[in-house]
């Protein structure tokens, strides 16, 4: 092997490791073992691809990396695919939020979906909590209509901690228990569906076949 070959080999190795390092960082948060395997598999792929004509060359590595796309895009695909696959197995909001958090750090689309999902889950949890707390705070928990100036009013969902508002009235009474529970569960389920739908749309818009 000549010195030039040596330098070439080192360059090839460096650009491959730089790419894989970037990918690994973008996959952070994913199960460690899974992320490690993804990186190992792609390392093996790049080597095979770059050595197709015998020697691993810098240009071969560059071509292999170009064919894979940017590490950010690739990580986005892994994370959203992972989310969809896991969502098929379990629809736990915690799992979905976890995956959305990772995806949000990679793309604007992910960030927006995370934001929407957080609002949805938050409202759902508030309704469920009000329903659950009604038996502990019978006089204060519930949906309150509070006067706001002459002919305006605010609707406020209160968990019932602290004293009852001086003005205004609680509208649902004990009905908040079934209604709050149903509305809360519905919100949580709809939010999960919304998140999965968004991820599917995103995946449809990406991953375009070459050629």
């Amino acid at each position: 092997m000549t010195m030039a070959d040596d330098v070439q080999q080192r360059d090839a190795q460096q650009s491959m490791e730089a790419y894989l390092g970037r990918l690994r960082r973008r996959l952070r948060g994913m199960n460690d073992e899974d992320a490690r395997e993804i990186v190992e598999e792609l390392r093996s792929h790049i080597r095979d691809k770059a050595a197709a004509s015998g020697q691993v060359t810098a240009s071969g590595v560059d071509a292999a990396l170009a064919a894979l796309g940017s590490p950010e895009e690739l990580a986005s695909q892994y994370l959203t695919d992972d989310l969809l696959a896991r969502a098929e197995v379990s629809r736990s909001p915690v799992r979905i939020l976890e995956s959305l958090f990772r995806w949000a750090s990679l793309s604007v689309a992910g960030f927006l979906v995370l934001l929407g999902s957080m609002v949805g889950y938050f409202l759902g949890v508030v309704f469920i909590l009000v329903a659950a707390l009604k038996s502990f705070h019978p006089r204060t928990a519930g949906v309150w209509v509070l006067p706001n100036g002459a002919d305006d009013f605010n609707i406020s969902v209160r968990l019932g901690f602290g004293s009852a508002p001086l003005e205004g009235r609680e509208v649902l009474g004990w009905w908040i228990m079934p209604i709050g529970l149903a509305a809360g569960c519905a919100l949580v389920m709809l939010t999960t569906r919304f998140a999965i739908w968004c991820v599917r749309q995103y995946r449809k818009s990406r991953a375009l076949p070459r050629g």
């Binding site: 598999e41 064919a67 894979l68 796309g69 695909q77 892994y78 991953a207 076949p209 070459r210």
Partner: peptide
């Protein structure tokens, strides 16, 4: 298809 699609 792109390679970036098949692996994920």
């Amino acid at each position: 298809v792109s390679e970036g699609t098949v692996y994920p």
